Simulated assay, not measured.
Amino acid sequence: MDLRIFTEPQQGASYDTLLTVAKAAEELGFDAFFRSDHYLRMGAGSAADGLPGPTDAWITLAGLARETRRIRLGTLMTAGTFRLPGVLAIQVAQVDQMSGGRVELGLGAGWFEDEHRAYGIPFPKEKFARLEEQLAIVTGLWGTAVGRTFSYEGRHYRLTDSPALPKPAQRKLPVLIGGHGASRTPRLAAQYADEFNIPFASVEDSERQFGRVRAAAQAIGRGPGELVYSNALVVCVGKDDAEVARRAATIGREVEELKANGLAGSPAEVVDKIGRYQAIGASRIYLQVLDLDDLEHLELISSQVQSQLT
């Protein structure tokens, strides 16, 4: 079971904070550092909350690419509404080169309308249709042989004789698709994804959704085992009940709610719950870390949770 650190910087984090967490994740043996792609704080509070303000996902990852050495880097999920697909393909390929081939692209349709209004970003109605074309373009550009050109004629995007450069450092840069949709999401994952991720879902809901993705893969002649299946879950671990309660309070959550909907409690409790996800086919967990100043939390997870997983 791979454990990856997943951050939400729009809630308030500077690049330096993210660098500190990424380096700690690398030193503590975690598999990867991922971040969300949002420009506006979520939840209660005024527009002034979330200081020092948003950081851009791919600028952040470009910096981390040069300041880390081992961990993989990526997004859960890049918002398709933020970037044109041709530009995104260039950005991600360049960051992959900068990292020596450690980047993964999670790509989603985009959903948080408030952040689009706040920063003047168009918020189209047909986001899922655009996502499908974006996936075809990004993977098509990367998959075009050097010396050949790539053209695409879609309803939302048109590319003519693109040189399809630059290429990622990796021969096949992993693409992640995720979500709860019962039909279109599994179909897109089966067609384009190397990994399917379901965020903040129960074991039972995860098992159902993994089954849909496996069925969609089989329907197009792809082996279901060709995909990695993963979950993203908020994490709150403590050596004892008091430490769990303290960490829950810091992120504004209730312990029992976290135990029901995330990975919370003692190391033994968390290991047990991760085992339940592993039993239904998950081989990777993205640990949503909401208090980025609590590096002792990461140390505890590394020494007493990760160490017990195989």
Rank of each mutant, 00 (worst) to 15 (best):
K23N: 14
T7M: 07
K239P: 00
Q91P: 04
R212L: 15
A25S: 12
R212G: 11
A22S: 14
A190W: 05
R35D: 12
A217C: 15
P174F: 08
L131Y: 06
A219T: 09
D194C: 08
S151F: 07
G12W: 06
F82L: 09
G211D: 09
D272N: 14
P168H: 07
I198M: 04
Y119K: 08
G43Q: 07
T139K: 06
V234H: 10
D2V: 00
K239E: 11
R253T: 06
T185E: 06
V270P: 14
R247P: 00
A129Q: 13
E204W: 02
D294R: 07
W111L: 04
D2Q: 13
E243T: 10
V92F: 01
A79K: 12
A189Q: 00
S162H: 14
T60V: 02
L107A: 10
Q97H: 11
E8W: 11
L165C: 06
R117I: 03
R148C: 09
G29N: 00
A79T: 11
T144Q: 12
S99Q: 05
I177L: 15
F196P: 07
S230I: 06
A182E: 15
R69S: 15
T160G: 00
A32Y: 11
I220A: 06
P174L: 07
I177Q: 09
G45I: 01
Q94N: 14
G143A: 11
V103W: 02
R246L: 05
E26C: 05
E104V: 12
K239R: 14
R208P: 00
R212A: 13
A260N: 10
R187M: 13
I280T: 01
Q306Y: 04
H297C: 04
Y119W: 14
R130V: 10
E126N: 14
P122Q: 02
D293T: 12
A22K: 08
A24G: 11
I71E: 07
F30R: 13
F123M: 02
R148V: 06
L131N: 11
D2M: 09
R4K: 12
G100R: 01
V21D: 12
I198S: 03
R66K: 12
P267R: 05
S99W: 03
Q97A: 14
A242G: 11
C236P: 03
P85A: 09
R284A: 04
F210W: 03
G140L: 01
A189F: 04
E269A: 13
S283I: 01
G110I: 01
T20R: 15
P122W: 04
A182V: 10
L84D: 07
Y229K: 03
R66F: 00
Q170W: 04
N261E: 14
F123W: 02
G179K: 00
P186H: 01
Y192H: 15
G45K: 10
L3A: 13
L290R: 13
L159M: 08
F210P: 04
R35P: 04
G63C: 02
L84Y: 11
A245F: 02
R117W: 03
L28C: 07
L263N: 05
R214E: 13
D96W: 08
